[in-house]
């Protein structure tokens, strides 16, 4: 991994912010000839305040609902000018799964040459942790104080339905895997999408030093499956391949997180069933059954 840093000192990220950690690896992989497009999200704040910036590539802040469309315009203009500059969106789950889903869908459908990275901290983090479409079943947020009654929106299957040439999942707890996937995404012409699980200490209510550990527990329990799908061909990534041979109980992932405190057995059971179903589906797809 290159030593050059593009996320510099002076960010206003919370201690233990894994979204910022993921951005560090994303930009190391993308390199200096990159424009970062950021809709309203934690990264709007994390990048620093005018007249300073803590990110060493151009950061274009755009309207909340517009990441996909803004990237479409920028990518088309740069390609028209004969430039190969990477156009990388760095957007949260709210800006991707909820308010920005239309613009994302449009950009994917139009075959826009860009990489869309959704860092998913499973709530509206920047406004203080309100429920989003990305919030999992049973998780407490400031607007679901009793736990979210609905399941997490499956953005990956929505994106997959657009048949982008490359899509993947990742987590900052596995930097090499994330780095490699960003490199691959940017080497492929057309739209690519990487869904990054971004554990959030204040939002998920766990100690700041545990972000990497929580990310690993997510993968080891099968809550988060690392995979990539290149031209429709699915491949489970090696950390998940290893972990899923002998997954840890879901409770080990949930226990350190205050947002799941007091989760009822019925909800826990549904979560477990959904994990199993997802693993089954991915395994079938990988083996070419479906």
């Amino acid at each position: 991994m290159p030593k050059e840093e593009f996320v510099l000192k002076g960010t206003s990220a919370c201690p233990g912010c894994s979204a910022s950690l993921a951005l560090r690896y994303v930009l190391k992989a993308a390199g200096p000839d990159t424009v970062l497009i950021v809709p309203a999200c934690c990264t709007s704040v994390v990048q620093g305040m005018y007249p300073n910036t803590a990110v060493n590539v151009p950061v274009v802040n755009v309207g909340f609902a517009t990441a996909g469309a803004s990237a479409s315009g920028m990518s088309n203009a740069l390609r028209a000018l004969g430039k190969k500059t990477n156009v990388v969106v760095y957007a949260g789950d709210g800006g991707t799964l909820d308010i920005g889903i239309q613009a994302l869908s449009g950009a994917l459908e139009r075959g826009t040459d860009f990489l869309y990275v959704c860092y998913d901290n499973e709530a509206y983090g920047n406004t203080g942790m309100q429920r989003s479409g990305g919030t999992p079943l049973g998780a407490k947020t400031t607007t679901t104080p009793l736990g979210k009654p609905e399941v997490k929106k499956d953005i990956e299957r929505i994106v997959a339905a657009h048949e982008p040439p490359f899509m993947a999942t990742a987590c900052a707890a596995y930097p090499q895997d994330l780095f490699r996937k960003v490199k691959k995404a940017l080497s492929i012409r057309g739209p690519s999408f990487i869904h990054v699980l971004a554990p959030c200490p204040p939002g998920w209510r766990y100690p700041t030093e545990k972000s990497v550990e929580i990310g690993k527990l997510a993968v080891k329990s099968g809550v988060w499956v690392l995979y990539e799908r290149e031209y429709g061909q699915l491949a489970i990534s090696s950390p998940s391949r290893t972990a899923l041979k002998n997954p840890i109980p879901l409770e080990e992932y949930l226990a350190p997180q205050g947002r799941f405190a007091g989760i009822d057995p019925k909800t826990l059971d549904i979560l477990k069933q959904r994990i199993a179903k997802n693993l089954q589906r991915l395994a079938r797809e990988e083996s070419g059954v479906c």
Binding site: V62, G63, A65, T66, A69, G73, M74, N76, G106
Partner: peptide, 16 residues
């Protein structure tokens, strides 16, 4: 896919 995106795309392009 919408006017909101039309203006956003023009903004993204214009910035180059």
């Amino acid at each position: 896919e919408s006017e909101h995106s039309a203006m956003a795309a023009c903004i993204g392009a214009s910035m180059t």
